[in-house]
Design a protein around this nucleic acid. Structure first.
Lengths: 330, 330
DNA sequence: ATGAAAGCGCTAACAT
DNA sequence: ATGTTAGCGCTTTCAT
C-alpha cells in the first residue's frame, strides 16, 4: 500500500480510502489511478492487518451440531460456503458433539474475530441456548431457537407430509400406511401434514397403519427396526395398504426389503414414497425411490444471502419447502 | 496484555515472553505469576494481532477437490479437523470443482495467512500440479502428487483387494467374480490385489467374470450400469460364480438387486464382499454387507498429526490399510 | 481533496 | 532477568 502511495505521490490514507470506502470524498480521477495501479501491481490487502485494525476478519464461523457426522447434511454447508466465497468470506466450521461444547466452540471461533457466527444442525430440532449465547448467534440452519430470538431456517416438514400424501391420493391410492420417525420434530410434523391431507380428501386413516419405524422413544439409525414385523402384520389379512409413506429414505430401504420378502411389487402392489432424498440410496433402490427432497441447498443458499446482507434476515422461523423428486416407486 | 503487565509491574515484553516462548530466559517465578494472573483474568491473546506480527494465523487451509460433494469422504475432513482443534488450529476448507480453480483457491486461502495448505480429494487419484503450486502444499490426502514432491496419504487399495479375495478364498469360495470400477486408480489396484491373491492360492481366474460395473471408460454413479445384464449372463449357464467382489458399496447394492431378481440367496448361493463401507448403505442392505472400510478416519488423523508436527511427514506415498467390516454377506 | 500521525495488540531486536 | 522501543499493514481521526 505504501508502495502504491509512493509511486503515485499520494498518502497511504488516500490509497486506503480509494480502495475500500467508495463513499469517501475524493476526486474520481485519483480513485481511478489508485485502483488501476493496485490492479496492475496485483495488490492484495493484508486481511490480517485490516482485521486487527477493524476488529473483524472476513470469516464466518459455523457451529456444526453433528453436521459433519450426517454426511448428506453437509449439503447445507456446501452451498452456504459457496455463497460466502463469492463475497470473499471464508467459513470456519467447528463441530460440536453435544450442547455443552457450544461455549467452547464459540470461544474458539471468536478468537479469529468472525463477522458472524451461525448454528447449523444435522437434523431438524429445537435448540435451547442460554441467553448470553443466543445473542452471539446470527442465524440457525436446519434447527430453531426455542425462544424465537434467532432467525431460523428449517425445512417445511408439515407441507412435505401433506404433499407426499396428496401425491399418493391423486394417484388413486387410498389405503395409505405411514412409518413414522418417533421422537423427532420432522416425524411429528410430517405426520401432521399427512393427516391433514387425508382429512381434506375425506379418506379415513387406518390408525393401525400409522406405526413407528423403530423401537424406542427416539428414532435413530441404530435402534431396533420395526419395519419388517410391521409390514408382515399389515399384509397378513385381506385388507392391506396400497401405499406406504416412509419416515425417511433409510426406512424406505428397509420397506423395500420387507415388501420384497413378502412378494409385493413396487409400485404395482404397493407404492412407496419417502422423505430426504439421500441420493446414494434413493436413486439406487430398485425401483428408484420417489421422495421429498430436503431443502438443504436452499437453506444453505438463503443463509448465505442473509449473512452477506443481500437479503434481510426474516424474524423467527422461516420454513423452506421440500421439492418432490419423482422416480419410479409410485 | 498491557493490563497484566501493569498489574504485575512488568513490561509487556516480559508478559509476552512468559506466555508464549517457554525457552526464553526468565525466572520461573515471574513466569508463574504472569501465567496465573492471565488465567485468572481469562486473558486470551488476540490471534489476529499476533498473526499480523508473525505473519501466520492459527489456521490450516484445505483445498477440497470435490470432497464435500462425496458425502462420505467428509470423514477425512472431520477427523483432520478434530485433531487440529486440539492444537487450537482452525481448518478453512475451500472447495474446488476442477483443477483450474486451484490457483484461485490457494490465493483465497493465503489471504488469511494459514500455517499450511493441504490438498484433499474425494477419491483416490493422481494429481498433477504445476511446480509453483506444489511448493505451497504441505500434504495430500486421499490422492497423490504425480511428481512425488508432496507427502501423500492414500488408501492401500491393492492390499484391500488382496485381503477381500483372501477372505473369500479362506471361506472356500473359489468361483469368484469381480465387478471393477473402470478408469479409477482404486479399481485398478484393487483388481491387482485380487489377482495376486488368486494367484497365490493357485485359483484360476475366469476372465469372463472380471467385468466393469458401468459402461464407459470412467466409473461414475451416473454412468449406465452393467451390473444387471452381467449377472444375468454369468448365471445363465451351469458354471457360475459363488462369490462376487464389488467395486464399491453402491455397486454391491445393485448386485444385491440383481441376485435377488434371479433368485440367488446371499450369502448361501453367492457371497458378496465390497469396498468403502458407506455405512448408510452397507449396514442397511439385506443381509448387511461385508466390506473393506476405506481408512478415511486414519488418513484424517495421521494428516493432523503430521501437520501439527507430532509426527514427521513421511516422504512420498504412504499407503494406509483398510479395515474389514464383517457383516452377513459372506 | 489530500496529508500527517496515531494506534489496533502483539513480537523481536536491542539495551540495560 | 527484565525494560524500551520499533514496527507488522492497515484504518481513522484530525489538520491542512
Amino acid at each position: 500500500m505504501r508502495d502504491i502511495a509512493d509511486r503515485l505521490s499520494l498518502s497511504v490514507k488516500t490509497v486506503s480510502g480509494a480502495l475500500t470506502d467508495s463513499n469517501i470524498r475524493m476526486s474520481d480521477e485519483t480513485r481511478q489511478r489508485v485502483r488501476s495501479l493496485a490492479e496492475e501491481l496485483g495488490y492484495r490487502p493484508n486481511e490480517v492487518a485490516r482485521g486487527m485494525r477493524t476488529g473483524v476478519m472476513p470469516i464466518v464461523g459455523m457451529l456444526a451440531d453433528g453436521l459433519i457426522t450426517q454426511p448428506f447434511a453437509t449439503e447445507i454447508l456446501r452451498h452456504f460456503d459457496n455463497l460466502l466465497r463469492t463475497q470473499e468470506l471464508a467459513v470456519i466450521v467447528t463441530s460440536i458433539k453435544d450442547r455443552g461444547e457450544v461455549d467452547k466452540g464459540i470461544a474458539d471461533l471468536r478468537r479469529l474475530l468472525p463477522q458472524h457466527i451461525v448454528y447449523a444442525s444435522m437434523y431438524h430440532q429445537p435448540i435451547d441456548l442460554p441467553r448470553a449465547v443466543r445473542k452471539q448467534i446470527a442465524l440457525m440452519m436446519n434447527c430453531f431457537d426455542v425462544h424465537g430470538d434467532i432467525p431460523s431456517l428449517v425445512p417445511d416438514e408439515e407441507a412435505a407430509g401433506y404433499q407426499a400424501a396428496c401425491f399418493l391420493l391423486q394417484r388413486e391410492r387410498r389405503d395409505i400406511a405411514y412409518f413414522n420417525l418417533p421422537g423427532l420434530i420432522a416425524g411429528e410434523l410430517r405426520e401432521k401434514g399427512f393427516r391433514k391431507a387425508m382429512d381434506e380428501h375425506g379418506v379415513a386413516i387406518e390408525e393401525n397403519w400409522v406405526r413407528p419405524a423403530t423401537r424406542g422413544a427416539l428414532y435413530s439409525g441404530s435402534a431396533r427396526s420395526l419395519v419388517r414385523p410391521t409390514i408382515s402384520a399389515w399384509f397378513e389379512g385381506g385388507h392391506h395398504p396400497d401405499a406406504v409413506i416412509c419416515g425417511n429414505d433409510r426406512v424406505a430401504m428397509e420397506v423395500y426389503n420387507g415388501l420384497r420378502e413378502i412378494g409385493r411389487a413396487i409400485p404395482d402392489d404397493v407404492a412407496v414414497i419417502s422423505f430426504d432424498n439421500q441420493v446414494d440410496i434413493a436413486s439406487r433402490l430398485d425401483p428408484p425411490l420417489t421422495t421429498m427432497a430436503l431443502p438443504h441447498r436452499e437453506i444453505g443458499r438463503l443463509a448465505g444471502d442473509i449473512i452477506t446482507g443481500r437479503r434481510a434476515a426474516p424474524e423467527g422461523l422461516t420454513r423452506i419447502p421440500f421439492r418432490i423428486v419423482e422416480r419410479k416407486s409410485v
